[in-house]
Simulated scan of single mutants.
Amino acid sequence: MPRFALLIEYDGGPFSGWQAQADQPSVQQAVETALGRLDPGFAAGARIGAAGRTDAGVHATGQVAHADLERDWDPFRLSEALNYHLKPAPVAVLAVARVADDFHARFSAIERRYRFRLVARRAPLTHDRGLVWRVRNPLDADAMREGAAHLVGKHDFTTFRSSICQAQSPVKTLDRIEIEEREIPHGREYLFRLRARSFLHNQVRSIVGTLERVGAGSWQPRQVAEALAARDRAACGPVCPPHGLYLAGVGYPVDPFAP
């Protein structure tokens, strides 16, 4: 059976998350339903694998999944057919590629990139409502960068890990955190970019929520290092809401979507 990689974008707002659930709408189920209209295997209940299981409300601009189909589709025609059958769900297949049988969206990945959007402005959001986290007052980006520097590298991230995280170890290597600040009409936007081979459950949201407290002046940058060293979930700052978070990309030894 030919294996295909799918590059997927979605608005996570209407969904309970990526993973299929019996009684809740999910992104996985939306894609599998579309595949079921094109392929007998998925009509009979075949499943796709994904690089990351995003939580309820979390978005993606670069999720990757793989699917084994009975028909050897032309990749462009498959993407067009899937997008037709995905309507009106806020899910789009950006690209499809034929891949080797041993390619696995999750286990072949060597890097995951997340982006978090935070907007500081007094007025409520309109166009970006549900797509960014809004706070009322400007933040100190330099202080947040100073605090974030303590988290880069290999650490025990127990403090920044959900209590229901199923990972076998809390030790992860965070390769990079970048914080970009830019002026927007009537406010400022802060764009957090995080990169690692893999992340713990709620790790990104826990980190950004803690750094927001630094930017607001409630924490000193050194307290981020103290919280990390505590290896105690109670030492973490607030966990920020999911709707500012995006799975922005997944890296592989060879990019399956390269021209």
Rank of each mutant, 00 (worst) to 15 (best):
D255E: 00
G12D: 02
L247P: 01
F103R: 01
A22Q: 12
N137I: 07
Q19K: 15
L200W: 01
P238R: 04
H66A: 11
H155I: 06
E189S: 08
E189T: 09
G187A: 05
D232M: 13
A60K: 12
G41I: 11
K154C: 10
P14V: 07
R112K: 12
F257Q: 05
P14H: 06
R3L: 08
G217C: 08
L125R: 05
P253I: 06
L131W: 15
D128T: 14
D142Q: 14
R77V: 05
A43K: 03
G130N: 04
P241T: 12
L194W: 03
A216D: 12
L82Y: 03
P242A: 04
T210G: 09
R3E: 08
A22S: 09
T210S: 15
G45A: 02
C236T: 08
E180D: 13
Q168F: 10
A227D: 11
I179V: 07
L82T: 07
R106D: 06
S162C: 12
R117N: 11
Q220V: 11
E146D: 09
M1F: 14
H150G: 09
V99I: 01
V93A: 11
A46R: 14
H186Q: 15
H85E: 13
R115H: 13
A30V: 03
R53E: 00
G49Y: 09
A105Q: 05
L194Q: 01
V224I: 07
Y10Q: 06
T61N: 10
P75T: 11
F257L: 06
A216P: 10
R37M: 11
A46E: 13
D72C: 12
G237D: 10
